[in-house]
């Protein structure tokens, strides 16, 4: 188990309820892969520094958790596959390394 920090951008065009569901889906996925969530920090809607897929804002949340290493690949996959997540990044806090 190692500690990680994930920042995820959820599509802000979704309804408020759907956004919260998307957040829960991601945090639940961490649990499913044997991880433990320490904290979820919802930043809320935020303007992008540049346009992504013709959108100007997204719903940001940051979660710190500990998980076994193989779980990270799976989580990255979920971030890429699901439509509601625009972008995501998993890093090891304190090192700045991308989830390795």
């Amino acid at each position: 188990m190692r500690s990680y920090e994930a920042m995820v951008i959820v599509d802000a065009r979704l309804e408020e309820g759907d956004i919260q569901k998307a957040v829960e889906r991601f945090t639940a996925a961490i649990g499913d892969h044997g991880g433990k969530i320490a904290n979820v920090d919802r930043w809320g809607k935020r303007r992008f520094a540049f346009e992504i897929d013709h959108q100007h804002e997204g719903y940001y949340f940051v979660t710190t958790f500990s998980a076994p290493e193989p779980a990270i690949e799976q989580l990255k996959r979920t971030l890429q596959i699901s439509d509601e997540f625009i972008r995501g990044k998993i890093v090891r806090p304190g090192t700045g390394d991308a989830g390795k």
Partner: peptide, 18 residues
Amino acid sequence: RLVATAVKNAREMALLPY
């Protein structure tokens, strides 16, 4: 180097402009 990678990470997440 740490600053540079941090800026690049922030750019990927659209927190800072390219």
